[in-house]
Amino acid sequence: MNSEMIYIQQVGAVLTITLARPERRNALSLQLMRELTGCLAAAAEDRSIGAVILAAEGKVFSSGHDLSEIPGRSEADYQEIFETCSNMMEFIQRLPQPVIAMVQGLATAAGCQLVAACDLAVASDQAAFATPGVKIGLFCTTPMVPLTRAIGRKRALEMLLTGRLVSANEAAEWGLVNDVVPAERLREATWELASQIVAASSYTVGLGKHAFYRQIDLDQHRAYEYASGVMTENAMAADAQEGISAFLQKRQPKWNGR
Rank of each mutant, 00 (worst) to 15 (best):
Q196G: 14
P143K: 05
C39A: 15
M1E: 14
H65N: 05
A156P: 01
A130I: 07
D66T: 13
D77T: 12
I100M: 07
A150E: 06
H221R: 00
D219G: 11
P132M: 11
S62H: 04
N169L: 10
L30H: 13
R73P: 02
V145M: 11
D217H: 11
M33L: 11
R251D: 01
V230I: 15
L165G: 07
A44W: 00
T190F: 05
F91M: 15
M1F: 01
G175A: 05
F82K: 08
G243Y: 07
F61A: 07
L176W: 10
G50A: 05
A56W: 03
R155D: 14
A109S: 15
I70M: 08
T232I: 08
L95R: 06
L120V: 03
M33S: 10
S201E: 02
I151M: 03
Y7G: 05
G206Q: 08
E80P: 00
E45P: 08
L28R: 07
E192S: 09
V180D: 00
H210G: 09
L120Y: 04
A43W: 03
A51Q: 09
L165I: 14
A20Q: 08
I53A: 01
A172D: 00
E188V: 04
A127P: 06
T232C: 00
L67A: 02
D66W: 03
I100Q: 05
A123D: 10
R25K: 14
I6S: 06
A76M: 07
R47D: 13
I70N: 02
I244M: 15
A130N: 06
A168Q: 12
P146V: 10
H210K: 12
I100Y: 10
V145K: 15
L54G: 04
I100E: 05
D66F: 06
L95F: 05
K209N: 08
A107T: 03
I244L: 15
A189H: 06
N2D: 15
A235G: 10
T37P: 03
E69M: 12
R185P: 00
D77R: 02
